[in-house]
Design a protein around this nucleic acid. Sequence first.
DNA 1: CCAAAAGTGTTCTGACTACACCCATGC
DNA 2: GCATGGGTGTAGTCAGAACACTTTTGG
Lengths: 208, 208
Amino acid sequence: MAVAVVVVIFTVRDGELSVLLIERSAPPCEGEWALPGGFLRPGETLQAAAVRKLHEETGVADVFLEQLYTFDRLGAGAAEAVVSYFALVDVHRTRLREELEWRPAWHAVRALPKLAFENERVVELARERLRNKLEYTNIAYSLLPERFTLSELQQVYEAILGEAIDKRNFRKRVVGLGIVRETGEVRKHGAHRPAMLYEFTRREPMVL
Amino acid sequence: MAVAVVVVIFTVRDGELSVLLIERSAPPCEGEWALPGGFLRPGETLQAAAVRKLHEETGVADVFLEQLYTFDRLGAGAAEAVVSYFALVDVHRTRLREELEWRPAWHAVRALPKLAFENERVVELARERLRNKLEYTNIAYSLLPERFTLSELQQVYEAILGEAIDKRNFRKRVVGLGIVRETGEVRKHGAHRPAMLYEFTRREPMVL
DNA sequence: CCAAAAGTGTTCTGACTACACCCATGC
DNA sequence: GCATGGGTGTAGTCAGAACACTTTTGG
């Protein structure tokens, strides 16, 4: 009996909130998908194990990562307790492992495959927490590159909240509360009017 | 290495937010105070262990109890992971154990003794969470008897939040949001005007 | 000239704050 | 009659929601 860690790694790809899953290449639950996770190494901290897993699967570090909940008996698994974390990453900064065994892949949260070890519960809880924290913190900073347009940010919010947001109100809120600020620059898209680029006032967790 | 559970049990006594501590009667940290807790029994669930601890120390069951956070290396202790819970009880329903060894006692949060195993961190976190949840849930239901006056409820809120609240605004909020409702009854105090008795609309956790 | 996305202001409503006086009771 | 706590209403402010049109650009 020991302690295990799992990480719910979210990103927004093509306007879809997605989560990183690993295809299991050995029993138990061979062939099913599961959240990245594993047992603590000797002497390793919980947080350190979560950071390690996140880095192993996506190559990223220094992103939003927070403890979520501690489960026991997850899928009658081998672990006495499973400490879950959730993380937010910018999909463009990630580099997934390419092996065919234990292959990681992004899955839209709206269409998850069958998961091993009751991982649905973990994902669902993480998703709720994400929706809540999005409303009163700046955690979205971890989902976008340094500079982005307000439309891009809004798309991220809409993907996570699952509903359309009014452009003007969104701007007022996100700028007014000091979540983001204008950089001087603009970006020229293809066939569109150039757009002002914004940046987060702080690229670390803060409560508003 | 194993998993341990600790429970931060809050109550409000004499207008002071207080927490239940146990005086340690054996090493390590003999003579210091610590939160009630211990290792999981074989086959026992985390939640079940927390419920058990709560019941052992206070005799109460069926109160608000929620997982708080999972620590590791708490005080360089023996546990690989320490899963903390926090609970709210009505002090008048509790019956503390009377033994002199491992004696439990209420301590005002504003004047804690030195705690073992870095339990200060746990208490502080629980306190923050309590303050936050008080604002947007009905968790106070667990701190008062079935029927109570609005003044009593307000005193509980003030003790937890640490600041005075306007009587009229408090009434509007707590009745208006449907946290409590009037019973028909009044209570006659000593030398005062009789007071309307209220009850919580639900004596279980709900988000407002 | 048309399609696509960027940008912009006002009005309304509901929630929260601040604030002061009268009432019923027991002593 | 007075001390104690119970009970009540109003005005101001602020945040959030609803809502439509104009501009720039590339093709």
